[in-house]
Design a protein around this nucleic acid. Sequence first.
DNA 1: GATAAATATGCATATTTATAGAAATAATAG
DNA 2: CTATTATTTCTATAAATATGCATATTTATC
Lengths: 156, 156
Amino acid sequence: MKNKRSRLQVITEILRSSVVGSQEELLAILADRNLNVTQATLSRDLKVLKVSKTPLANGTYKYVLPPVTKTVSPTGNLSTFTSHGAVISIEFSGHLAVMKTKPGYASAIAWDIDNKGASEILGTIAGDDTILIIPREGVSRESILQLMDLTFSNKD
Amino acid sequence: MKNKRSRLQVITEILRSSVVGSQEELLAILADRNLNVTQATLSRDLKVLKVSKTPLANGTYKYVLPPVTKTVSPTGNLSTFTSHGAVISIEFSGHLAVMKTKPGYASAIAWDIDNKGASEILGTIAGDDTILIIPREGVSRESILQLMDLTFSNKD
DNA sequence: GATAAATATGCATATTTATAGAAATAATAG
DNA sequence: CTATTATTTCTATAAATATGCATATTTATC
């Protein structure tokens, strides 16, 4: 159907922001948003999204999205920092991105990021091997990754 | 029974070393090792172990163990600092935590936090007396506090 | 356009997983 | 030891999830 892509998007948003313990539950939430599908479809959606069901400390369950860690493999057009292999990973939490680098590299790489002059990025803060990247509002994770010349290599 | 502990141990070993796609399957493997339990018990075991079922790229499923939280390094772990009063406070804003320390301590403590290898924490960035702690998505404030060997003095 | 191929969905149902008791086993107190 | 209490496990079953197949919808090809 036309709306599969957007449904998957909505599902990830829901799972990112709330604790959902069963497909029935998620089904209801989707229905609230006028997304009416059956449990069968949902099961398949979750499979596509690689969402896993995991037990929580409080005795309940939660459907969790796969980590958005992209282990780094540079695209054709290499920036200096990715080609040096100094960037280890980038992962998101909320609208923030955290980039891990080799020890000592963070400041240098952060400088590079800042000096791309990309409007998508509001600013960076670097420690020794960690950079906090603060995107502007409304900037997607994908576009940040693209900006960093990173491609996905999600693993199991 | 007396062998619950060891059974859980065996289960983790199995799950660590092979791809198991259903409880029935795991059940059979356990039976091979003369560990005869019912699926009901297994379901509870997996719940205790916080094992999650996640879709694989090849269209099948796999039971995966939770990320290992590394045990503490011999010297200077976090509780040393917290118990000696170098950590002044920790407070949350959104999903971020900000820890205040005695002047000059921040980097050292941040290093300790990083080196706990806790999967709950995406990264830290330290100044002189302030540490920004970025938890992974979906990680509760409580679990961050626990991780820091801190207890609550108030609400949420 | 028409038609073929590919993709997505629902229905019905099989399969899988979780849980409420009851029963068994172990631990503890007197 | 015996009674009491707590754990662990099982049986039976409920609840949740996955999937085969038929149908609808979209996309590609002519």
